[in-house]
């Protein structure tokens, strides 16, 4: 019975992941390996970026028409924010589908999302990355790592640490069924600051982490150390988010640009 329950939980979480995220690793890898009929539009300089802005991300940029005449760094930062807001929305729906999450104290649900969403975003972003760049605009565009690096500081410093994390993370060769449980484990984390019902969340977390361990053993029988390696990634993600939060504050100041209200809520008093 216990094994059946564990398999059911893994399945429920995987189904919620497939249902709620518009992009996943399988889709991203199909595009990145050139197995789609139309390859993504490659953004590698100012000219290709402008073309992409007029077509692929017209909606995003259009929503802030005032940005039209702003510098490229500010426009890219704005696009990153739009994508983050959308993923936070998807993550919230995903979290609600994780058994037990919705019955938690509402304050604790807020806390878990506040601290978990960016770790989850960077874990999932790796699916859209290879060593040369990143899929954007639902996979219709590909922005090169070199172009992002060529931008003015501090915006140029924003993506490189995520690429470095992604290359190591992608080497673990997780699939979407593994990632679904990993993202659930990130969100249901008992040591976030300010949690009220720690015991309840720790129980949920233990359950999910145990299911993740069993799932990895079955799904990757040749990699016996995958589970401890993934636990280490949880710590790496926390560090990545701390650095990112500091950088965002710097960008906000130096670029005199605004932050989406949802992201403001998340970053405020975070670390």
């Amino acid at each position: 019975t216990q094994l059946a329950d564990q398999k059911t939980l893994a399945r429920q979480i995987y189904d919620a992941y497939l249902k709620n995220f518009s992009m996943n690793k399988a889709k991203a890898r199909t595009i990145l390996t050139g197995k789609t009929s139309t390859p993504p539009f490659v953004i590698h300089d100012m000219e290709t970026l402008q073309l992409a802005e007029q077509t692929l991300v017209a909606k995003m940029v259009g929503s802030a028409g005032a940005l039209k005449d702003r510098e490229v760094e500010v426009r890219i930062f704005h696009c990153c924010q739009c994508t983050s807001v959308e993923t936070v929305t998807e993550l919230t729906e995903f979290a609600k589908s994780v058994p037990g999450f919705s019955s938690l104290d509402l304050n604790d649900q807020v806390t878990l999302l506040k601290y978990g969403v960016y770790e989850a975003i960077f874990a999932m972003l790796a699916s859209c990355m290879n060593k040369d760049g990143l899929l954007v605009a639902y996979g219709s565009g590909f922005i090169t790592r070199e172009f992002l690096k060529s931008l003015r500081r501090p915006v140029s410093d924003m993506m490189e640490p995520k690429f470095q994390f992604a290359m190591k993370f992608n080497a673990l060769e997780l699939d979407d069924s593994d990632l679904a449980l990993f993202v659930a484990a990130i969100i249901c984390c008992g040591d976030r600051p300010g949690l009220v019902n720690v015991t309840h969340i720790e129980e949920m977390q233990e359950n999910i982490v145990h299911v993740l361990q069993l799932h990895l053993l079955a799904n990757h029988p040749d990699d016996t150390f995958l589970f401890p390696k993934l636990l280490q990634k949880l710590a790496d993600l926390r560090e990545l988010v701390t650095e990112h939060a500091q950088l965002v504050q710097e960008i906000k100041k130096t670029e005199d640009t605004s932050l989406h209200p949802l992201l403001q809520e998340i970053y405020r008093d975070m670390y």
């Binding site: 807001v85 729906e93 506040k114």
Partner: peptide
Amino acid sequence: LKEKHKILHQLLQNSTSPVDL
């Protein structure tokens, strides 16, 4: 906490499209 995180709170209570945010 809920007061300081109105949008997150709202997302948790209903399905809100990011377009509406």
